[in-house]
Design a protein around this nucleic acid. Structure first.
Length: 891
RNA sequence: GGGCGGAUAGCUCAGUCGGUAGAGCACAGCCCUUACAAGGCUGGGGUCACAGGUUCGAUCCCUGUUCCGCCUACCA
């Protein structure tokens, strides 16, 4: 027996824990910055320290891991660098929530103690996702784990900020920004999600000082308190005469002008728009065009401020209610029209954001965007699939300045100091002792921190040690590939490209693979509130990590979202089980009875040559697909090879050989081939299913331990002729099986089988494959002839030829039934077959009868059609003869 | 409004030089054949959304239409 036996049942849990521990204890995943091997490097999209593994992470990291393991096996010096993101707003929210439970706030704690508290939380429970990634099998170089708030990475942030500031690419300005009243901070445009909601379009009469009035339409009546003008289109005949007149703003009795602006659509609403520069993005722009001063009516807690007069202290919703009521009472509310309004929501907490005028820090993006677009246009960065380039260009072309200051405490504090005496702002790499201008010591650091994405943008080089010069940077920058999903192309990918080009003078990665978003079986986004979340950790518990990984890979078709249902994972768990049993079978049959593996002495059968040929194609397909990021194709190629070729056919074919029916030598040879195929298959599959393949591999004899260190299999030479011969045997087996089923003949009844073929190659194939036919079709006597008397009392089929195997003519297969032929059943079976042949024949004849086809189609296509017609005709004649015989039997 | 993607078997999807379609799951029948019932064997199932065009020939290329997603945008 084999050196060890595998457990009877496939139990992923234990196996996974075992290998996970061994891998992490070993050095297998560590990259070597001084290696002479070609480098392949990736930086992980750093998950939040607050996060836990969801399917998006699972997919993202499974694909990266497949690539990392594949490249390692192909001989690359692989760096897959892991890390975490400090997630400013999200993390601050978590800790603030904790404080609240203790009856504390960050303000009562003070900035310093609050930050200490966040660090403490980070050490204790931040980054649970790292353990989950390890469980997923992620073969990161864990010795190089980085965090965006690490000292080195923070230095990179500071270096970049100061450089950009000195170049004038970072500036501070009063500008309208999105403010989240719950998170109490400014957000960038990208951090706002848009959603339509049911609301009203309010039509409000604004009285004119000169008498009469003008009706404006608005979705946000409460902001009228900050109106600085009413705008109409200059071409609008209804209002032309009012341009330049004065409106007396209701409720607050402020006088504002009527102005003309082309941006106003005469056709919408009443054609008159109220202009609230401090609380609406468009109005802000309009006001700038007309030199109007903004008036803020909300404070930084999003409550109405002193400028809102009697409404002071109200939230915007409360204010809206009161304003609408008051307008009604004053008889100024003309109409409330049902209307879908776009709402901006904070991407972190979903609260409706308030556009507010405020003083913030910005990055001037246009000068950075230009080279970033060129890099993609010139192909120095390639998007896969490439249609995402268009999305990237669209955004980069219309890019707006990036608001980078956040009014929170957790993050990289802005390295700018305000002088209380002279007002000068000192921006410095080192903490300054005094004001850069008046040299006074009365300075205070800006209280804001930077957008988390600001540090993420530096990730591909800050993690490699920049701004220090390091061997890592030398060896691994630019990184080879970045794996991410499309929803963060703007947030992250674009910004990394800009920063990489700016500060490293080279692209941050050569290829960007954009993978799918995982949705539920109905195509809905998974979300906790919908309750349709599939938890990858639960799936790993239930079906094993390998099954989850394989499922994700098999569904990762480019350009399409993944709709995932639990049954899929179960299906691939079954595949893992199939593999397990294949391994058990292999081990049972590669008896250690002095099996010599001298390849030269092995005599290969057609079946051996067939499986080797199929394996070879499979290896080519898998490596080719992986090189093109076609994970689904690669996974499916292995699946169908293992299940439908190796298990369904090869293992069944060689069972008689393994039983020793053809002698000891053949038995050994078959076992050797099977073992060889198994070894290659495990290595081929390893990137996808690392645990089970590592386990099985460790049981195979004569392997160096650690499949991880093995190379990726090379495709062996193919044997097309012998492979074709084997498919002839398979066709005959299938034909007999079909007859057996349709004639309702139990397996226990042995059958005879007679095959006629004019083709010597076909006859030879069947003679060599006699044992296979006998074994798999349960045939006791197989006779193969070129010509002769066709049996009358038999079921009949024609196989081969036709669209089947090239160069091998049709084979007539007879199963004598000794008076038990079900004449009706057999007749209808043959007629069905005949009809099918005739249908195909009609198509082919149509083509060949068409002069245009013969003249215009390429010769090879015409030739192919002619061959097809010949074999179909042959088949038709043979089936026709079979029908005649049956009819004769009847009479 | 602009952009991108999708529409192929009951479901989920392949189909990368144009030559009348494949897989998995589900379904039906038979089978505990000593690797595996998380299995085996056999089978049924399709106007490739619709309408035009190019072509000898279109699921594939072009145009338009319908429906469905997503991204993006200053009709308040």
């Amino acid at each position: 027996m084999s050196k060890k036996d595998l457990a009877r049942v496939y139990e992923p849990r234990e196996i996974e824990m075992k290998w996970s521990q061994r891998w992490l204890a070993g050095e297998g995943f560590a990259a070597d910055a001084r290696s002479k091997k070609p480098a392949f490097s990736m930086v992980i999209p750093p998950p939040n320290i607050t996060g836990s593994l969801h399917l998006g992470h699972a997919l993202n990291n499974t694909l990266q891991d497949i690539m990392a393991r594949y490249k390692r096996m192909r001989g690359y010096n692989v760096l897959w660098l892991p890390g975490l993101d400090h997630a400013g707003i999200a993390t601050q929210n978590v800790v603030e929530r904790q404080l609240k439970e203790e009856g504390l706030t960050r303000q009562t704690l003070g900035r310093e103690r609050f930050i200490e508290r966040v660090w403490k939380w980070k050490e204790e429970s931040g980054g649970t996702i790292l353990g989950q990634l390890k469980r997923l099998g992620a073969s990161c170089d864990w010795t190089r784990l980085k965090f965006t708030m690490d000292e080195g990475l923070s230095r990179a942030v500071r270096e970049v900020f100061v450089s950009l500031f000195n170049e004038g690419l970072i500036y501070r300005a009063d500008y309208i920004i999105n403010f989240c009243p719950r998170c109490h901070t400014a957000l960038s445009d990208l951090e706002v999600e848009h959603e339509e909601r049911d609301s009203f379009l309010y039509h409000i009469d604004y009285p004119l000082k000169e008498g009469g009035g003008i009706t404006v339409a608005t979705t946000r009546p409460e902001t009228m308190l900050g109106d600085m003008a009413v705008a109409v289109n200059p071409e609008d005949d209804r209002y032309k005469h009012l341009i330049g007149s004065t409106v007396r703003l209701p409720l607050v009795n402020r006088e504002i002008p009527v102005i003309a602006d082309r941006a106003v659509e005469a056709a919408f609403g009443t054609g008159a728009v109220k202009i609230t520069p401090a609380h609406d993005f468009n109005d802000f722009e309009t006001a700038k065009r007309h030199g109007l001063k903004p008036l803020t009516v909300m404070d930084d807690t999003a409550r109405m401020n002193e400028n809102a007069g009697p409404y002071r202290g109200l939230t915007s919703l409360e204010a809206r209610e009161r304003v609408v009521n008051d307008l009604k009472e004053a008889g100024l509310l003309k109409k409330e029209e049902r209307y879908r309004v776009p709402a901006g929501l904070c991407y972190r907490c979903g609260t409706v954001v308030e556009p507010t005028l405020s003083k913030q820090w910005f990055v001037k993006v246009a000068p950075l965007a230009k080279p970033a677009m060129e890099a993609v246009r010139e192909g120095r960065i390639r998007f896969v699939p490439e249609n995402w380039e268009r999305t990237y260009f669209d955004w980069m072309l219309n890019i707006r300045d990036w608001c980078i200051s956040r009014q929170i405490w957790w993050g990289h504090r802005i390295p700018a100091w305000h002088c209380r005496d002279c007002g000068h702002i000192t921006v410095s790499r080192e903490d300054p002792r005094g004001c850069g201008r008046c040299k006074g010591g009365n300075i205070e650091q800006d209280p804001d921190v930077l957008d988390t994405w600001f540090s993420s943008a530096l990730w591909p080089f800050s993690t490699l040690g920049w701004p220090e010069k390091t061997p890592e940077e030398e060896a691994f920058y630019p990184t080879s590939a970045l794996f991410t999903s499309f929803d963060i192309i703007f947030f992250w990918v674009a910004r990394m490209i800009m920063m990489g080009l700016k500060f490293k003078g080279d692209v941050p990665f050569r290829e960007v693979y954009i993978h799918a978003l995982v949705r539920d079986a109905e195509g809905q986004k998974m979300s906790k509130s919908k309750g349709n979340v599939i938890d990858p950790v639960v799936m790993m518990d239930r079906y094993g990590t390998d099954a989850l990984r394989f499922t994700l890979a098999a569904f990762a078709a480019q350009g399409r979202d993944i709709k995932l249902a639990e049954e899929r994972i179960e299906g691939y768990r079954n595949f893992a089980n199939k593999l397990w049993n294949l391994a058990r079978f292999t081990l049972m049959n590669i008896a250690g009875e002095g099996g010599d593996e001298k390849a030269g002495q092995r005599e290969l059968t057609d079946a051996d040559r067939w499986i080797i040929t199929r394996l070879s194609s499979c290896i080519e397909e898998v490596s080719g697909s992986l090189d093109r990021y076609e994970f689904d194709r690669a996974a499916n190629a292995i699946y169908s090879f293992v299940w439908h070729e190796l298990c369904d056919w090869y293992v069944e074919l060689i069972k008689p050989d393994l039983r020793g029916e053809k002698g000891e030598k053949r038995k050994q040879a078959s076992a050797d081939i099977l073992l060889g195929v198994m070894k290659d298959t495990m290595r081929l599959l390893h990137p996808f299913m690392p645990f089970i393949t590592e386990e099985i591999y460790s049981y195979l004899p004569d392997v160096t331990p650690g499949i991880i260190k093995e190379g990726f299999p090379e495709p062996p030479p193919k044997y097309p002729g012998e492979a074709a011969a084997t498919t002839v045997v398979m066709d005959v087996i299938r034909a007999v099986r079909n007859i057996r089923t349709e004639m309702n003949i139990p397996l226990s009844t042995a059958l005879d089988c007679l095959c006629f073929s004019k083709d010597p190659a076909a006859r030879r194939a069947l003679e060599l494959g006699e044992a296979y036919v006998k074994s798999l079709a349960r045939v006791s006597v197989l006779k193969v002839s070129g010509e002769g008397e066709r049996p009358v009392d038999a079921a009949f089929a024609v196989v081969g030829g036709g669209g089947g195997v090239e160069g091998i003519a049709g084979i007539e297969v007879f199963v004598p039934l000794k008076g038990h032929v079900d004449i009706a059943g057999e007749t209808s079976r043959l007629i069905r077959g005949l009809e099918k042949v005739e249908r195909e024949l009609a198509g082919v004849e149509g083509k060949l009868g068409n002069g245009d086809f013969l003249n215009n189609a390429p010769a090879s296509v015409v030739e192919k059609e002619k061959e097809k017609m010949a074999s179909l005709l042959e088949k038709k004649v043979k089936i026709g003869a079979g029908l005649e015989r049956i009819r004769g039997l009847k009479g």
